[in-house]
Computed example of a mutant assay.
Amino acid sequence: MSGLFRTGAGSDLASLTTSAVRDGDHYVVNGQKIWTTWAQWADWIFCLVRTHKGERPQQGISFLLIDMRTPGITVRPIRTLDGEAEFNEVFFNDVRVPVENLIGTEGEGWGYGKYLLEYERFSMSGAARSKRILGELKEDAARLGVANDPLLQDRMTRIEIQRLALEHMELKLLSQSEAGENPGPEASKLKIRGTEIAQALAQLRLDIWGSQVLPYSEAFLEGEADAENPAAAGAAAAWLNLRKLTIWGGSNEIQRMILAKQVLGLR
């Protein structure tokens, strides 16, 4: 199942142009979607498509479940800086989707998408993952003999403080979720802080390994990195790959706009 579902709009969900026109017992879908994670392996994809135009751009968006084996679907992998083809462009050319594959009510996809994005952003916090990675970096620093560097210790301490704050915020929202509350705009806080910490850790890993990553960067991009020093190769690859974090799921700039409007009440 492909995880990302916005078609032809990027972060500006309301501007999507991929269309689905009703034709008897089917919708005929035309358009494209970019940055679809692992689409080359997916059997099905959820898509937000425009079934009609409304007075506001948020109106007329519907949620379809589409079989990736349907004629008219083309998947084009996008090779990223770390050498992986994690993302894809998906093209829809007169793709016929049974009406029974409509999720919920026609024209209500905007609400469904916003609800799902709250949980996607919530999941991007990664507090536990950041805790594990920071522990690994401390071990790397000790093994490389730089653990006592005062500047390195200062950076690790600052990240640890931010990570602890993130963990407490995540636990608070998890507690609210168990009580039946949705994450709401608060999920944007987790997305911002979690992705920024992940990028800071990737930079820290790169700096700890220093010049040792240089012989492995090109090899890793070509898929030829060996086990001679996999940690150094991984440091280079992680840094390149994680540049995406502050963009996907809605860029962090957009998350700040959400918080300004929905939490602080600014206009």
Rank of each mutant, 00 (worst) to 15 (best):
L4C: 13
F5G: 15
F5T: 07
T7W: 02
G10E: 11
T18Q: 09
R22P: 06
D23S: 15
H26E: 14
Y27G: 04
Y27D: 06
V28E: 03
V29S: 07
N30Q: 06
N30K: 09
G31S: 10
I34M: 13
W35K: 06
Q40P: 00
W41E: 08
R50T: 09
F63A: 11
R69C: 07
I73H: 02
E84P: 02
A85W: 00
L102R: 09
G104E: 08
G109N: 03
G111S: 13
E118V: 01
E118Y: 04
F122Y: 15
M124G: 02
A128H: 12
A128N: 13
K131G: 13
K131P: 00
R132K: 13
I133T: 11
L134M: 13
L134Y: 03
E136G: 01
L137Y: 02
A142W: 04
A142H: 11
G145S: 07
N148Y: 11
N148C: 05
P150E: 10
D154T: 09
M156W: 01
T157N: 12
I161G: 03
I161P: 03
A165S: 15
L171T: 15
K172V: 13
S175K: 15
A179D: 14
E181G: 01
N182T: 14
G184F: 06
P185F: 11
K189T: 11
L190V: 07
T195G: 06
Q203T: 10
R205I: 01
D207I: 03
I208R: 08
Q212M: 09
L214T: 08
L221I: 07
A227C: 04
A235N: 04
A236E: 04
A238K: 03
A238H: 05
W239A: 11
L242K: 04
L242A: 00
K244P: 01
K244T: 11
I247R: 03
S251P: 12
E253W: 08
Q255R: 12
M257Y: 06
K261W: 09
R267A: 13
